[in-house]
Design a protein around this nucleic acid. Structure first.
Lengths: 217, 217
DNA sequence: ATATAATCGTTAAAAAATTAACATAGATTA
DNA sequence: TAATCTATGTTAATTTTTTAACGATTATAT
């Protein structure tokens, strides 16, 4: 069994949510056991890779049997930290911020939005699903008083860096960043980017690529 | 100069939007030329990687000089297909679908949302920024009549696969998928996933990881 | 109870991605 | 104009990631 301290590669980590997703489906379907081979067939990774990945965290399977679905699912959940609950705030209560506040699935997973913040006086005072939009001036106080662990950054690009720095001053150590910019913050701050436009551009690239191939024929 | 037909790796492709972003900033700041070394300092990739990446598409630089920012920016834009315009539809007019319809930046980049579709009668007939929400029954006709090239899939997980299949029947070949599921579609259909929860779970993983490290000390 | 088959964990090999090295072209300077 | 410096494009080395191989262990069937 591998030591936990040996850093797991980013490639492995980014596959974990997918394992989680498929295992949840197996649980939902009442399937009790599964082999790496059968999981491979469903999920699209090689069986070898699946076994390697799970072994980064200590093997959860049994030779000749396979993996117990529920056990494996729970382990992955634990590894992803989905057994914890986290208070979050959304900074920037525009369309995207509001959409995320409205999206109930995150709350079900343990990510609870406690407030939204904005500078726009027209938005301040409104509520989204019972979650208030507050003046950004109140943010520091709110973070301190409400055990806020994650900030979801939904401001326009222009303000993102400065707002992020302010959040860090207030003690925030984890930022989910939707602004199309790479934040420059101290190393101990965890930043996960959700760069939607980057994703769209990759789609666009593939379309251009296909177009080019078609022309060449 | 490398041939264009030799497939460019996914790793390279996913860095292109980031190049685009930084080059746009350089253009905005009126910077005329840049070396891979200086770009490396800003963007955080190694200079070697930057030169390798650009060379996948034919070198755009000049020895002893560096890269002409505007030229490079335009090349990257072209490679990403951002000189084209695409008509899109959003399928699923819930919070996320509406947020994307509201987000004007995509339109500025050439991705124009022509309509939203939903099954919910309460939504049908409403408009988001002048874009109508239509009955999903009208989708096939609309796709045919409006030169729709991209479908943005924002339905709940349960409906996503079936809706995607319908879209493909209607001739859609490119899907930007926000539903937390891996779509199973013919190979010639381009699917780019924007799996927000996957991204959030990676953040959550990093937090759990840090927590563990702190405990071990 | 024994034999056979299944399947993991792990080690080894292969492939892919990243980084380093360097020869050469072109810019800059004296 | 010649000499020097800069910085690319490209090839080579290194590192990382993925895939394959296989011994060991357990389930299943006879």
């Amino acid at each position: 069994m591998q030591r936990r301290t040996s850093k797991v590669s980013d490639a492995v980590i980014r596959r974990l949510p997918r394992y989680h997703r498929y295992l949840e489906e197996l649980v939902r379907d009442g399937i009790k056991r599964i082999s790496s081979k059968e999981l491979s067939r469903r999920i699209g990774f090689t069986a070898s890779q699946i076994r390697q990945d799970f072994n980064c965290f200590g093997g959860f399977g049994q030779q000749g049997y396979g993996y117990n679905v529920e056990l494996l699912y729970n382990e992955i959940k634990k590894i992803l930290g989905l057994n914890e609950r986290y208070n979050t705030i959304i900074v920037g209560a525009g369309n995207l911020g509001q959409a995320i506040a409205n999206y109930t699935n995150f709350r079900k997973r343990g990510f609870e939005v406690k407030a939204l913040f904005d500078i726009n006086p027209k938005l301040i005072g409104l509520s989204i699903r019972g979650i208030e939009i507050l003046d950004i001036d109140k943010m520091g106080e709110f973070v301190r008083d409400n055990d806020v662990k994650i900030a979801i950054l939904c401001t326009p690009r222009e303000n993102a860096q400065q707002v992020a720095e302010t959040l860090v001053e207030y003690g925030i150590k984890s930022i989910w960043n939707f602004a199309p910019i790479d934040l420059d913050l101290p190393n101990d701050v965890i930043v996960e980017n959700a760069h939607l436009s980057d994703s769209l551009y990759v789609l666009s690239y593939r379309m251009a690529e296909r177009e080019k191939e078609n022309k060449e024929k």
